[in-house]
């Protein structure tokens, strides 16, 4: 009951957020443009002609979905703390675990609802143009996993931050760091330290943004032409199915681990003296 009530409040808060709605709208518009105008050779190649457009959609999700989750998640607990509302909630007969879980469920639901709405539009157009529905569903599923992972990361940072702006700054820093650690980081490590392929594969899968990217490209692009050397190596090691399963596992692990750290942070955080 308590978790549900707190979650409902978070959903309403997130959907009232200007940044959240703008981010979701831009993602939907960008995805629609890719599907409408990115599959030029589809009449000849069928769905394969949309592969690159869908891979582009995956790239778009890689940039936008973390932000869609980070904005409301970082604002949730830290924003409530800054406004004094968190202390009042914690003064009620609730546990900190219920407050964290309610917040997580609420933010994740808001992210899920906006992604499902966006993909509803994008997917309908894509399927109408010959893309198999299963692929669109797979892309949606992985996008939701990415959203869940960054919801957890955002709430972890938010649970220990005294202000909303501090939590959001930390969230954006983490996001940029993970993006930079992606292809560029892998290439840099390869050149600088000459790391073995297995280390680079682990590095790629351990980064939620990269795990999402390589899994999506492996599924959506039959030629895996934009997968990069580490992705190709991963397919060689794990196979397409194994890579997808490993990437999903990585995203689930990020969701659970960051949520666990966030819960622990909230449980041990001493509210500042008012």
């Amino acid at each position: 009951m308590t978790v549900r009530r707190l979650a409902r409040r978070e959903v309403v808060d997130a959907l009232r957020s200007y940044w959240f709605v703008l981010d979701a709208a831009l993602f939907t518009a960008g995805g629609l443009a890719l599907v409408l105008f990115g599959g030029g050779d589809a009449e000849v190649l069928g769905y394969r002609g949309y592969a690159r457009a869908l891979a582009g959609l995956a790239q778009l999700a890689m940039f936008f979905v973390p932000l869609m989750a980070l904005f409301p998640a970082t604002a949730a607990l830290a924003g409530d703390r800054e406004a004094g509302t968190l202390e009042y909630v914690l003064a009620q007969p609730v546990t900190r675990g219920e407050v964290f879980l309610g917040t997580w469920v609420g933010v994740a639901t808001a992210v899920l609802l906006s992604l499902v709405a966006g993909f509803g539009v994008i997917g309908t157009v894509a399927v109408a143009r010959g893309v198999p529905g299963a692929l669109v569903a797979g892309l949606l599923g992985f996008t939701l996993l990415l959203g869940a992972a960054f919801t957890s990361v955002g709430l972890w940072l938010s649970a220990g931050a005294s202000t909303r702006s501090r939590a959001t700054s930390l969230g954006l820093t983490v996001w940029i760091f993970l993006l930079a650690l992606g292809s560029l980081g892998v290439m840099g490590a390869l050149v600088r330290w000459g790391l073995p392929a297995s280390a680079l594969e682990a590095w790629t899968l351990a980064n939620p943004v990269e795990a999402f990217r390589v899994a999506m490209v492996a599924v959506l692009d039959p030629e895996a032409s934009v997968l990069g050397p580490v992705g190709a190596s991963l397919i060689g090691t794990l196979g397409r199915g194994g890579l997808v399963a490993a990437a999903a596992g990585s995203l689930l692990l990020w969701s659970a681990a960051a949520a666990g750290l966030g819960l622990r942070r909230l449980a041990t955080y001493t509210e500042p003296r008012s």
Binding site: D13, R16, A83, G84, T85, E87, Y88, A91, Q92, P93, V94, T95, S274
Partner: peptide, 18 residues
């Protein structure tokens, strides 16, 4: 939790929920 169930609280500066 049971302690908080028994306590009614009015803070010094009521926070403004959205």
């Amino acid at each position: 939790r049971e302690v908080r169930r028994r306590v009614g609280y009015v803070p010094q500066r009521p926070p403004i929920f959205d």
